[in-house]
Amino acid sequence: MQEASAINKEHDKPPQITRGFWLTALLILMFIANPLTAFAYFTSPDVIVSVHPKATIGIVYFFGVMSTINFAIAVGIWCWKKWAVYGMYLSVAIAFVINIYLGVGILGALFGLVGGLVIFLTTRNRWQWFN
């Protein structure tokens, strides 16, 4: 009888919440890259404008703000927040549009969507853990 009780207790345990390798790797990359990118955008906007002639100082500062927001989004995803996943989708969509405007080219702009795709693929089977 004790054995049956032990088996039932095993089934009553909630599933172990795990991020998985790819989600963890992307979030750690975001924790490192976004502050560095924001720093570069805020401290050297003229360098970025010289590389992308269609870019204005305002767009460069906007990208700096977006990098800062993306850091907060990464923290939110780490903490299992749905708003952060939706924020990631919005962020990559905005970056895609601006990259097309800047003349990065369709392939370069599509490369910017990879983060959103990885977030989608790595969170869809874990969605029940997000609140």
Results as ranks from 00 to 15, higher is better:
S5N: 14
I7W: 12
K9E: 12
E10F: 14
H11D: 10
H11F: 10
K13D: 11
P14N: 02
I17E: 11
T18K: 04
T18V: 13
R19E: 03
G20L: 08
G20F: 08
F21C: 02
W22L: 11
L26M: 07
F31W: 14
I32T: 13
A33S: 12
L36K: 05
L36N: 02
L36C: 02
T43A: 07
P45Q: 08
D46K: 12
V47G: 11
I48N: 05
V49K: 07
K54F: 11
K54R: 11
F62P: 03
F63Q: 07
G64P: 04
G64F: 07
M66W: 11
S67V: 05
I69K: 06
I69Q: 03
A74T: 05
G76L: 09
G76D: 09
K82W: 12
G87W: 01
M88V: 11
S91A: 06
I94R: 07
I98Y: 00
N99W: 05
G103Q: 04
V104K: 00
G105K: 00
I106S: 00
I106E: 01
L107N: 03
A109R: 02
G112C: 13
L113C: 03
L117G: 12
I119W: 03
T122G: 08
T122W: 09
T123N: 06
N125H: 10
W129E: 00
